[in-house]
């Protein structure tokens, strides 16, 4: 360990990003986990839906990819859908893929799985058995749109793991059965044992779209090159398989989860708000 070299701030002041993130993830998951019960048993329909489209009162959110698919396939514009996409798109434009790391229910499940594995095996990070080129994310996005346009039906709307979590919970509460397409979730979880966040980093079209929107985001993880001791802890901590040590966290693939910030012993990584999209 290279802690011996004195860091600027004491280790006590390191912000526990992973704790904060887990709290936000849990809250976001609880929202869609409790809501079907409120709807079904108490007939409180103030909140409806899940992360495909969430309605809180008259504040509507529409997932950008699903909205875009619907728009492209029917070639018609519907204002409420566009307005609902506005907040998620602005969020992605400024902060990048934060939906994926801070809100997505699949991310919550995988995070739990991570913690469970850590508790059982004591090994901090799973060895990545298969590392696929990061660029595959863009191919996934393109393939998804092409396939949907060819079939003339949106595919991601009923096969999206983030949406499937909500749908399975709702199906279980409302109809006391699970939908068969939930196996997609199982596949995502199995892939997690091959490589950390295998699905998220390469096969999630929604993640691809959000990464594309946020490729010139304002919030980035900035590396202080002079102070970095190249200990490699951040590289190992990154769930997306990036190398913050090489300043790779500024690329489009980073989802601003803050794991590398927490792992850094020398505090050379920090969230910074850059003034313009480049630099």
């Amino acid at each position: 360990m290279s802690v011996a070299k004195s860091s600027k701030t004491p280790a006590l002041q390191v912000i526990r990003w992973s704790h904060r993130r887990l709290i936000v993830l849990t809250g976001a998951f609880m929202l869609i986990a409790i809501n079907p019960f409120l709807n079904y048993f108490l007939q409180i329909d103030f909140v409806q839906g899940w992360y495909q489209s969430l309605g809180i009162g008259s504040l509507w959110f529409v997932s950008p990819l699903e909205g875009l698919e619907s728009l492209l396939i029917t070639k018609s514009v519907y204002m409420p859908a566009l307005v609902g996409m506005l907040i998620p798109v602005i969020l992605a434009f400024l902060l990048g893929r934060v939906f994926c790391s801070w809100l997505c229910p699949v991310s919550f499940l995988l995070e739990l799985l991570d913690r469970l594995r850590r508790a059982i095996t004591r090994r901090r990070h799973l060895h990545n058995k298969l590392v696929v080129a990061k660029r595959l994310l863009w191919f996934t996005l393109i393939a998804e749109f092409l396939l949907s346009m060819i079939l003339g039906a949106p595919l991601f709307v009923f096969l999206s793991p983030p949406g499937l979590v909500g749908r399975e919970i709702m199906m279980a509460v409302f109809f006391h059965k699970l939908a068969l397409e939930g196996v997609v979730l199982l596949v995502v979880i199995v892939l997690e044992f091959v490589t950390r966040r295998m699905f998220c980093r390469t096969f999630c079209p929604l993640g691809g779209l959000l990464a594309l929107i946020g490729s010139h985001r304002r919030l980035v993880v900035q590396l202080d090159r002079e102070a970095c001791t190249h200990c490699g802890l951040c590289n190992r901590s990154c769930p997306m398989g990036l190398q913050p040590e090489e300043n790779e966290a500024k690329t489009a693939y980073c989802w601003n989860c803050g794991e590398c910030l927490e792992s850094c012993q020398d505090n050379v990584l920090a969230f910074t708000w850059r003034k313009n999209g480049s630099g």
Partner: peptide, 22 residues
């Protein structure tokens, strides 16, 4: 093509008339 399968109609239906296909 138009429906994004968000399930909000299923959740608000007070009579449970609307079911969801799999």
């Amino acid at each position: 093509g138009k429906c994004i399968r968000c399930g909000r109609c299923v959740e608000v239906c007070p009579y449970r008339s609307i079911i969801m296909l799999d």
